[in-house]
Simulated scan of single mutants.
Amino acid sequence: MPRASEIFNIAFDAADPRRLAEFWAVALGYQLEPPPDGFGTWEEALVAWNVPEADWDSASAIIDPRGVLPRLLFQKVPEPKTAKNRVHLDVRGWRYGAGGEVPPEAERLAAAAAKVAELLAAGATVVATVEEYGNTWTVLQDPEGNEFCVT
């Protein structure tokens, strides 16, 4: 039987990879990826790998501290974002209960509002709040204008 493919990165184009990595670490509860084993810092690793200093800011990554969810890679590109995203992330502000139960609506809305406030402080901007078919979510943009939703 063939082995199923797995996601090892979700890659984002960016003007400032480190800034976007820091933003999305806050948004998702991730952490900046630590340097590889044997290196105290990323700079030590890049020097050892003979990466020119001009390229040191070409990428940044964040990882799920639990080691469960995919790594997010932010890679520098020369061109700016020019159109609406074709793919975006949805961020849930609330958590399931210990038994897997969905919290009451008021609790979910309060948690989503708190997450939106946290992300605004981290550099997001609000595009719109949408109420549709009994659901409510907020559309935001990250510091480089990439749209995402918080529910």
Rank of each mutant, 00 (worst) to 15 (best):
R18C: 08
Q75P: 01
E107K: 10
L109W: 05
A45V: 00
G134C: 07
S58W: 03
E131K: 14
A111Q: 13
E44S: 06
T138C: 07
N9I: 08
R18M: 10
P65C: 00
V127E: 15
Q31Y: 01
E107V: 13
L119V: 07
P17Q: 06
E118W: 05
P80V: 12
A27D: 04
P143D: 10
R66N: 06
A54T: 15
E43G: 01
P104N: 08
L73V: 02
A21W: 01
D13Y: 13
P2V: 15
A83P: 10
S5I: 12
Q31A: 08
V127N: 11
E101L: 07
N9Y: 14
W137A: 07
A113Y: 05
G100D: 11
A59D: 06
E131G: 09
W137K: 11
V150A: 04
R92N: 15
G40N: 06
P36Q: 00
V102H: 12
E132D: 14
E33V: 00
P17N: 12
I7P: 06
G38K: 05
E101N: 10
V102T: 14
T151Q: 13
F12Q: 13
F12M: 14
A61S: 09
W94M: 13
S58C: 09
V47C: 03
A14M: 08
G100A: 06
G29H: 10
E43Y: 07
E6V: 07
S5T: 15
I10Q: 04
N50F: 11
V102L: 14
L140D: 06
L32P: 00
E79K: 11
